[in-house]
C-alpha cells in the first residue's frame, strides 16, 4: 500500500538516484518488466496504448471540435458553456478532460495555456503534449513574460490585444478556440479542421491560415 509518507518518498528517491542505471531506456525497461511480472499490465496492452495515442487520439480531435464550433452556433454555445459535455457529441471525453473549459480568442483578447507546477494537458482531446509544453523554459516563462514567449513562436501580439494566461493548477483543463481565418467562407467542417493546429488550441499560435 502507498504510505503517503513524504520523507519516505525522499529517501527512496535518493536511494534510486544512486542505484539505477542513468540510461532512461533501461529504467523504463525495468519498470515494464516489474509491472508485467507482477501481472499489472500485459505487454500487448502497452502496444495498444501507444497505437491509441499515435493513431486515434491526437490534436485532430480538438481540430474537429473547433471546426464544429465555427460552423454550428448552437454547438459553439454548448462548448463555451460546458466543454466536457459538448465533446461527448464526438465521443472525445475522457482522460484529463472531466473538467474541460473552452476559452475564445477575439480581436481584443488572446488566450494561452500552461501548467507551471507539472505539465497538465487535456490528453483525450489534444493527445500527447508537445515537448516544448513540458520544458522548464515554457513552464517558467509563460506566466511571467508570455509576450516574449509568443514572439519565440512567431506570434507578435499587438499592444491593444489583452493576453490572458491560464495556469492549470487544478483538474480543470483548457482548450483555446482560435479565430476562424478570413477566406474560409463556405468551407465545410472537415476542410476547416484541416487548418486548426495543435499550437493554436494551446494558444502559442494566433493567426491560422486559409490554406488547404
Amino acid at each position: 500500500m502507498t504510505s503517503f509518507d513524504s520523507d519516505k518518498a525522499a529517501e527512496l528517491h535518493r536511494h534510486l538516484h544512486s542505484h539505477l542505471p542513468s540510461d532512461p531506456a533501461l529504467r523504463v525497461k525495468a519498470l515494464e518488466s516489474l509491472a508485467i511480472e507482477r501481472g499489472l499490465v500485459a505487454p500487448e496492452t502497452i502496444d495498444a496504448w501507444v497505437e491509441a495515442y499515435s493513431e486515434h487520439i491526437g490534436p485532430m480531435r480538438g481540430a474537429q471540435v473547433i471546426a464544429r464550433a465555427w460552423t454550428d452556433p448552437d454547438f459553439k454555445s454548448r462548448l463555451m458553456e460546458n466543454a466536457t459535455e459538448a465533446i461527448k457529441d464526438f465521443g472525445f471525453e475522457g482522460n484529463a478532460t472531466g473538467h474541460l473549459h473552452a476559452v475564445e480568442n477575439t480581436d481584443a483578447q488572446h488566450n494561452m495555456v500552461v501548467c507551471t507546477l507539472c505539465s497538465c494537458y487535456p490528453f483525450s482531446i489534444l493527445g500527447m503534449s508537445p515537448a516544448w509544453y513540458k520544458s522548464a523554459a515554457y513552464r517558467s516563462r509563460a506566466v511571467r513574460e508570455p509576450r516574449a514567449v509568443l514572439a519565440e513562436f512567431g506570434v507578435f501580439l499587438p499592444d491593444d490585444v489583452a493576453l490572458r494566461v491560464w495556469d492549470s493548477t487544478a483538474e480543470l483543463r483548457y482548450i483555446v478556440v482560435p479565430q476562424r481565418p478570413d477566406g474560409t467562407d463556405g468551407w465545410d467542417a472537415d476542410r476547416l479542421a484541416g487548418i486548426v493546429t495543435r499550437n493554436s488550441m494551446i494558444g502559442t499560435e494566433r493567426d491560422l491560415k486559409a490554406e488547404g
Partner: peptide, 12 residues
C-alpha cells in the same frame, strides 16, 4: 517553476 528565470528560450 512559474516565474523562475534563467531557463533560456522555449524549444519551439
Amino acid at each position: 517553476l512559474g516565474g523562475k528565470q534563467g531557463h533560456g528560450p522555449v524549444p519551439v
